[in-house]
Design a protein around this nucleic acid. Structure first.
Lengths: 206, 206
DNA sequence: AAAAAACTTGACCCAAAAGTCAGGTTTTAG
DNA sequence: CTAAAACCTGACTTTTGGGTCAAGTTTTTT
């Protein structure tokens, strides 16, 4: 078993993720990925057959965390718990995978030209599930009459912004690096506004 | 006075805006901008000296609408009115300038490599102003104790998502084109959730 | 130890796309 | 009407960057 192969492949993928995040697919040069980890360009091509393939791997690596995030909607049967956990999870993802998130955001921004059809299918299904669950809660009077899809769009945008547009976040928070406290503030603010805004402010007694 | 010049320049800028929005700076080919409006590539270079310059013009064209959007924070002295108008305005911008918005989003996503320093300065000042105004309202008890910056981040993200990530919006709304009704629903949902979420739900009697 | 397998890389090739320009046509000013 | 100014573009040069490859070195296997 070749240990070198795995080590170098992940090193390359990490460097590629950062480059793709900062420059997009077309703007990224293989030679820059290589020099970021002190390798000659040809070495990259020994491990990955093309720029496309490398990009796809980076993109794929983000799909799993993304699909996992909707778990709270299946797990709980009350909007207060589900929404709270969902927001926490999504902010956590932004904190832990800022670069992969940017690559994904870039992909969506440009109309998802490299996103495989089966991934799109999975994402739409997840969204339908979450949306239906929210509608049920609305119908059962557990929350205000909020359009589920638009609520989801807002949640996605508000949480992913801490990864995708972190340049802007850092600018206005006047910091070089979004701190632990900032993420906590973001999570707290969002939970406070969304729960109250949906009419599920305080956790009802069970 | 050359009428041709102005007409063609704006035609080129419009085509360029769409191409840059869909493919990013590096992914856009001058020849594609040209053929989109049935011009030979060399003609583009007669009107704009370089791809960089063309891109800067597209980017600049979005700055004014963007800076205008904060007007409600100066105009009103109550969060209910200001937030309502701000959300309406921002959604309107997403509806009317989806391409320019995408170009701007792409710029921020990649760390604003082409954004002039004076624009950045203006944006930070606007944000400080809006943020201070929100804090005043919190202090005067006109709204709940919400972190102003994080609230702004959320508002930006939630409104811009209808332009920047419209591919995703269309996918989940199962439509080819976001309808007037969809924008109305988005605006309504956001206003409802944000106002109630901030504790300024119903407009208080003056 | 020696053969096989895995890894490395400088030098190269080539397609794509930015950018130029000379010599033309059209428009405008007087 | 004519001369200057503005406009147009096919054909060209230049640069960039993805991808290849042959000739190595290192590691693993037997």
């Amino acid at each position: 078993m070749s240990r070198i192969r795995d080590k170098k492949r992940t090193a390359i993928l990490n460097a590629a993720c950062e480059e793709f995040a900062n420059h997009g697919f077309a703007g990224t040069k293989i030679v820059d990925i290589a020099s970021k980890i002190n390798l000659p360009k040809a070495n990259i091509y020994y491990y990955f057959e093309s720029k496309q393939v490398l990009y796809r791997h980076v993109l794929d690596s983000f799909i799993q965390p993304l699909l996992m995030a909707t778990a709270p909607f299946d797990q709980y049967d009350h909007p207060a718990e589900a929404l709270t956990d969902y927001i926490k999870l999504k902010i956590e993802i932004s904190k832990n995978h800022p670069n992969a998130s940017k690559v994904f955001a870039n992909e969506i921004l440009h109309g998802a030209p490299h996103l495989p059809a089966d991934i799109i299918e999975k994402l739409t299904q997840q969204t339908s599930r979450a949306s239906e669950k929210l509608q049920q809660w609305v119908d059962r009077g557990l929350m205000d009459d909020i359009n589920p899809l638009h609520l989801l769009f807002s949640l996605w945008a508000s949480t992913q912004t801490y990864a995708d547009f972190n340049w802007q976040i850092k600018l206005h928070l006047k910091t070089d690096c979004i701190s632990e406290q900032d993420y906590t503030d973001a999570t707290e603010t969002l939970i406070k506004v969304i729960l109250k805004g949906c009419g599920v402010a305080t956790q009802v007694a069970k």
